[in-house]
């Protein structure tokens, strides 16, 4: 009995103290696909594909695509894409090009119990001139009042694309404040009328 207990205890100690056997993780490969050039303001497609050492797709793995960013005195990675690979080992997304600076992308797979971590990089050259990319539209948009004719599905009669209406439409960003301008013109016209009365007062007082 004592032997049996000792043997069991020995086995238990051996079992607990035995070094765990860790199998070496398989290598993985990550490929990042992005266009070499893009236009400023364009939205481009970016994809990454994760495969094992034999080229077989790895599904369900988390891939993060980042780009280095600086702001004031700080720097870090901005996450552009964060997703899990599909059964084809791929993950894809869209990125809006918001800077004329070349865009450095880095895709990363952090590794897991089965596969090693992997990284891939790509660089996108940006073409085009830096201009305002978006315009904030505050408030309600009333077609023909503060919204360009024909915009957002508001179609006019035939000929909206050319002629006077077409030209107005081209000018619309500058005219979008016309309700305010109309109010100002009205009020200032009344002021001008009052000033014109001043001249008439002067004339009416002239001695014959």
């Amino acid at each position: 009995m004592r032997r049996a207990v000792a043997a069991a205890a020995t086995l238990l100690v051996l079992a607990l103290s035995a070094p765990s056997v860790v199998a070496a993780a398989d290598p993985s490969r990550l490929a990042l696909t992005a266009p070499a050039t893009a236009r400023f303001g364009e939205t481009i497609g970016v994809g990454a594909r994760l495969t094992d050492g034999q080229g077989a797709p790895i599904s369900g793995a988390r891939i993060v695509v980042v780009t280095p960013m600086r702001f004031l005195n700080g720097a870090g990675d901005a996450v552009l894409l964060d997703g899990r690979t599909d059964k084809d080992g791929s993950v894809a997304g869209e990125i809006a090009i918001r800077s004329t600076e070349p865009l450095a992308l880095r895709a990363r797979f952090g590794g897991d119990t089965q596969y090693d971590a992997a990284e891939a990089a790509a660089r996108i050259s940006v073409e085009g001139e830096a201009v305002a990319l978006y315009e904030q539209h505050a408030g309600a948009r009333v077609p023909m009042l503060n919204q360009a004719p024909g915009a957002d599905g508001v179609s006019l009669a035939a000929g909206a694309g050319d002629g006077v209406l077409g030209r107005m439409r081209e000018l619309w960003p500058a005219l979008s404040g016309w309700p305010i301008a109309a109010a100002l013109i009205t009020v200032w016209s009344i002021f001008a009328f009052a000033v014109s009365l001043l001249f008439r007062i002067r004339s009416a007082g002239a001695l014959p």
Binding site: V187, I190, F191, A194, L197, L198, R202, A204, G205, L207
Partner: peptide
């Protein structure tokens, strides 16, 4: 003073100008 002499025409014009400005 814009040559003000208080003539009826001047008074009428001034009254109209004040009224217009008062409204706006």
């Amino acid at each position: 003073a814009l040559g003000w002499r208080g003539t009826p025409a001047q008074r009428r014009l001034l009254d109209r100008a004040i009224t217009v400005m008062m409204i706006v």
